[in-house]
Amino acid sequence: MTTADCPPEQLTTDQAKARILEQLSPVRSVEPVRLQEALGRVLASDLIAPIDVPGFANSAMDGYALHRSDIKTAGQQGLTLAGYSTAGHPFNDRLKPGNCIRIMTGALLPEGADTVVMQEQTRIEQELVFTTSEVQPGDNVRNAGEDLRQDTQVLSAGHLLTSADLGLIASLGISQIDVVRRLSVAYFSTGDELVTADQTLA
């Protein structure tokens, strides 16, 4: 006798589950939702990064942006402060040799600069900026695409979206995503051993 031929009362728990699953089909309907409504939803398709993250080279520290070749020996070459770069308010000119700019964390690294020196590793004398420790090219710089490269897969279809995922998706500039439609579930209780809350137990 096959499982399909067995009376329900003769089925094991695993056999009963298997019989139920045989009657089910996956939900394939897709619906778009706003990102703030996507927590706990299932991603309908692979998520591909549409942009680099970060989208531009920027500073990982508060400090001074410069070109490493302008610093031969720590504490010996003073650089002229040519401007400022903060998040949302970049220094738009090309950095000239012998100059540096004050830069804040997350701010755009200007053209002509390749290194950021932490403010704790500098001193100011007669309006010139001196480094107080050895500097390596590329120090404290986050390059474009360092976290995520454009066209790389970020999340896979079928992924259950968490709050961390939503933050990641937001960093890609995405405000709406496709998710699998929610299940419609009905449940009921049976058995004469069940009573309402105001009834006396037998």
Rank of each mutant, 00 (worst) to 15 (best):
A197R: 08
S189T: 13
E193H: 14
G138V: 09
I48Y: 11
S45E: 15
G75A: 07
G83S: 10
Y84W: 05
R149A: 15
V30M: 05
S59L: 00
T132H: 03
V185I: 15
D93V: 08
L155Y: 12
G191L: 11
A4M: 11
Q23C: 07
D5Q: 14
F188H: 08
T80K: 14
Q119N: 01
H67L: 03
L24S: 10
E193I: 11
I177H: 05
L81E: 03
D14Q: 13
S171K: 04
S25F: 09
F56G: 02
K72H: 10
G75C: 12
T132C: 11
L172D: 14
R123K: 15
M118N: 04
T105N: 00
L47E: 04
A82G: 03
L172R: 03
I169Y: 10
V129I: 15
D178Y: 04
F56D: 05
V154T: 06
A74Q: 09
A197M: 06
C6N: 04
S189K: 13
S189N: 13
Y187F: 12
D139Y: 00
T190S: 12
A4E: 14
G78E: 12
T190H: 09
R123E: 07
L95P: 05
L160R: 10
D62Y: 00
G112I: 10
F91Y: 15
R149F: 02
S171I: 02
R19M: 14
S175L: 07
R149V: 13
R41P: 00
Y64F: 15
A157D: 08
E9G: 01
T132A: 13
E125L: 12
I174C: 05
T131R: 03
R123F: 02
P8E: 12
I174N: 04
Q36N: 14
A87C: 01
N99H: 15
R94C: 05
V53Q: 09
D62H: 01
R19E: 15
E111Q: 14
V141P: 01
A144R: 14
A44R: 04
E31K: 11
T152A: 12
Q76V: 14
Y84P: 00
V116H: 01
G83C: 07
N140P: 02
T2N: 13
C100Q: 11
L166P: 06
R182H: 08
